[in-house]
């Protein structure tokens, strides 16, 4: 029996050729098919034996790799940004406040200090205002009496106490600068 004949049997087993089979020819075809089932069965079983966790980890890596160029995230950013819940809105406000926290604190303190100064100066220049108040004498007395600072706790910042003296007395200003404030901002 020739190699050519065995090739014919193999082709027959693979469905590539129709040929007459008898005796050993039929047995060889069956043996080829059987070997095929063994190889296929072995590999499929090996694949089944891999824990699902390995493939889950694989997907995680694939997902990371393909994440950036995915059309989904590119075409739907507006949808993602315009569907916030109430908490989403607040969380965005919170994030904004967190981002500009130092500037906001500095601004608020500065505004407070300026307002205090303006109140003092305005009080000096417009006595009528005080006279119209319920207790102008007390206001004037408090405003012109130097404050006694016993303790100053400014967590996350530096506190500075100013005493502004004039002919009417002394005005105390407490200036707090947060530590993470960048000069000029």
């Amino acid at each position: 029996m020739s190699a050519k004949r065995d090739l014919d049997f193999m082709e027959h087993a693979d469905g590539e050729l129709e040929t007459e089979l008898a005796g050993d020819g039929r047995a060889k075809v069956e043996a080829v098919k059987e070997l095929g089932e063994l190889v296929r069965g072995r590999l499929e079983r090996a694949a089944d034996d891999v824990p699902e966790a390995r493939f889950a980890a694989m997907w995680s890596e694939i997902d990371k790799s393909i994440g950036k160029p995915m059309v989904k995230s590119q075409t739907l950013p507006v949808l993602a940004d315009t569907t916030p819940s109430a908490t989403g809105l607040w969380s965005r406000i919170g994030r904004f406040l967190d981002t500009y926290r130092s500037q906001i604190i500095t601004g608020a303190i500065s505004a407070g200090a300026v307002a205090a100064l303006a109140l003092v100066l305005r009080g000096n220049g417009d006595p009528a205002t005080h006279r119209n108040g319920s207790d102008p004498i007390d206001v004037q007395r408090v405003s012109h009496r130097p404050a006694e600072i016993e303790d100053l706790d400014t967590p996350g910042g530096t506190g500075t106490v100013f005493n502004l003296d004039d002919e009417d007395g002394s005005t105390t200003v407490i200036w707090v600068t947060p530590e993470d404030t960048v000069e000029g901002i």
Partner: peptide
């Protein structure tokens, strides 16, 4: 050439 038999015709069992 090719062999005529392998595992007795029952690969799954093998």
């Amino acid at each position: 050439g090719l062999l005529p038999r392998l595992l007795g015709g029952n690969p799954g069992r093998a």
